[in-house]
């Protein structure tokens, strides 16, 4: 029989890859490892109430036991983890980012997750450019264009490349693209199927070897009191369900969803542009400027921005294939 019945709350629909391929399988791993003593019910689409930015607070307060959320929904709460969103820190490998965040967690990141027991942090496959009709090869081609930004650091990337960031809710993006309210968007390929972006855009652009322009970080976290109330063997099961092998699998799941998205676009006749090394080099200067801006802001907030960037780069490099 189940001794522990937990609720996992998140913001995407039950048909999303995150729900079907990651969260439900993870819950099943926990259930198997505890031989059915733990039962995790996954509630998609904010069915337990509130808006996505409230998820972190819901986990902290025990409104729900577990959450999956996008760190970017609550800017300001996870300033250290944000280093992994930065372009040139995150390059092209979600698995390496996942493992690097695990490696750095205790020493560098843990203190900003007060009231939470983090199960795992994960990145998506990376932001890339979706353009309505701009077949661009250099930052100069972006000059003066309007792009939908995915996050705070994403807005900085867009600014650094000479374009203007525009904030808008995701569901409004297809309409905005089709009427050229924005000329493009900075988001991963994985969003393409959900929004049918192949219909509004002609060009999907990324760097060589799947190099991207930054990423977004997600967390699965448990309420701290709930965690501490669990017996050691159950806690162990959660840790094992979320171990490095799982982080690698999660990286693969998101890579797979991303590949599925770009295939859908190319099959619909879109052009998948892979920048050459030389072309991509022209993007790196501005993107390093974003990192400098981030370091400066982090230092201003009393963090050691430099060492966070260096540690993150080193950790990602050590886990890269």
């Amino acid at each position: 029989a189940q001794d522990y019945s937990l609720k996992l709350h998140h913001f995407l629909s039950e048909r999303s890859p995150a729900h079907q391929q990651m969260l439900v399988p993870w819950a099943e791993r926990v259930e198997e490892l505890t031989e059915g003593r733990v039962d995790i019910e996954v509630y998609p689409s904010m069915t337990l109430g509130g808006r996505p930015p409230e998820l972190v607070q819901q986990a902290r307060d025990g409104v729900v036991d577990l959450i999956w959320t996008l760190n970017g929904y609550t800017p300001g709460l996870f300033p250290r983890t944000e280093v992994f969103e930065l372009p040139t820190v995150f390059v092209n490998d979600p698995t390496a980012a996942n493992l690097a965040m695990r490696e750095m967690f205790d020493e560098y990141l843990a203190e900003e997750y007060k009231g939470l027991q983090v199960m795992f942090l994960q990145a998506h496959a990376g932001n890339a450019l979706h353009m309505v009709d701009a077949d661009l090869r250099s930052p100069a081609d972006l000059e003066g264009l309007k792009l939908r930004t995915p996050s705070r650091t994403g807005a900085w990337v867009i600014e650094a490349l000479g374009a203007s960031p525009v904030a808008m809710p995701v569901p409004e993006l297809p309409q905005a693209l089709s009427k050229k309210v924005v000329e493009g968007a900075l988001i991963p390929w994985e969003i393409i199927p959900a929004l049918q972006l192949q219909e509004q855009t002609d060009y999907q652009i990324e760097g060589p070897d799947m190099s991207r322009f930054g990423t977004s970080i997600f967390q699965v976290s448990m309420n701290k009191d709930v965690w501490e109330s669990l017996p050691a063997d159950i806690q162990d099961a959660f840790l094992q369900a979320s171990n490095e092998e799982w982080l690698t699998e999660v990286g693969g799941i998101w890579r797979g969803a991303d590949d599925f998205g770009i295939n859908m676009a190319t099959e619909a006749g879109n052009t998948h542009v892979v920048l050459s090394d030389d072309e991509y080099a022209a993007f790196e200067g501005p993107m390093n400027g974003v990192v400098d801006r981030w370091i400066e802001e982090a230092n201003g907030a009393g963090l050691d921005g430099n060492s966070l960037v260096e540690a993150a780069r080193a950790a990602i490099a050590s886990h890269a294939e």
Binding site: G50, R51, P53, E54, Q58, D61, V63, P169
Partner: peptide
């Protein structure tokens, strides 16, 4: 009651600030 009281801390703001 704890769940309700906790949720009421931010539920009102969340609902009143829906962009759409």
């Amino acid at each position: 009651y704890k769940i309700l009281f906790s949720q009421l801390k931010t539920l009102g703001y969340g609902q009143f600030s829906i962009y759409d």
